[in-house]
Amino acid sequence: MPIHEQSLIRPEDLRTHDQLVVDGVDVSGHWSTFIHSRVVSDYNEELQEQIASLPGGEHIHRCWQCGSCTNACTVNAINPDFNPRFWIYLVRMGLESELLRDKEIIWQCVSCNKCTYVCPRDVFPEGVMKALSHWLELKGHTRKSPAMVFDEVFTEQVIQRGRIEEGRLIRRFFARTGQALGQDWLVEMARRLLRHLPLGLLTRMGLASLRAPRTRGWSGARDALNEYVQEQSAAHRRALGLSELIETARQDASGASGG
């Protein structure tokens, strides 16, 4: 399968002229297309370093742009704009504003690991996609994606109790993303499931949902994990220079109120 690459010529940069003569040749109209020239000056020289400081992004510098990741990508086959090779290129070049054009779809990586399987340079593109999504959220370019909300609800429950109870997980996820639980397809799924289930199993599942299973002797692990996650989250903010920003804003605010 060929690599589905996107055109770097964007519709808004195309120029046509009703009347234009170049070196005595009439080039008016649509038969020939000109491209608006532009100069990129807003490089973010720290972009690669920032992505590399987040989990999953550590090996982005190894990429030599072969495009195997995009070629193998599950999501790219559905949406050609989903292009890991291109995003890695943009990050390495520091082209932040270009990257931000795709900010609403980067989180859609399904973690199938086909990219990581084929990558000849061990870039771990799947991890890079996660680092990019984190970066977009931490920097405030995007809201928390539904996938990240799900990951957080899930991880909170594991850290809290040691185990997952799916009914509770789904209810919490739908509540936190403001969706109704009564989606037609979920209702239909439940209806088909309930058609054949014996009463004993239903009771057991209902009880599990109410009690929510937990791992015995888990409290030590819970405290250790909570502490670690908080420590890491602070470290990520520091790496992206966000703690300083917050501190400056706080000082400005107190300075303004003091004056």
Binding site: P55, G56, S111, G127, K130, A147, M148, F150, D151, E152, F154, T155, V158, I159, G162, R163, I164, T215, W218, A221, L225, Y228, V229, Q232
Partner: peptide, 15 residues
Amino acid sequence: NCCGAMEAKNVDPKV
């Protein structure tokens, strides 16, 4: 306990 499934690694891989 739960292995972390597909989710915990996105909060932090070492979790």
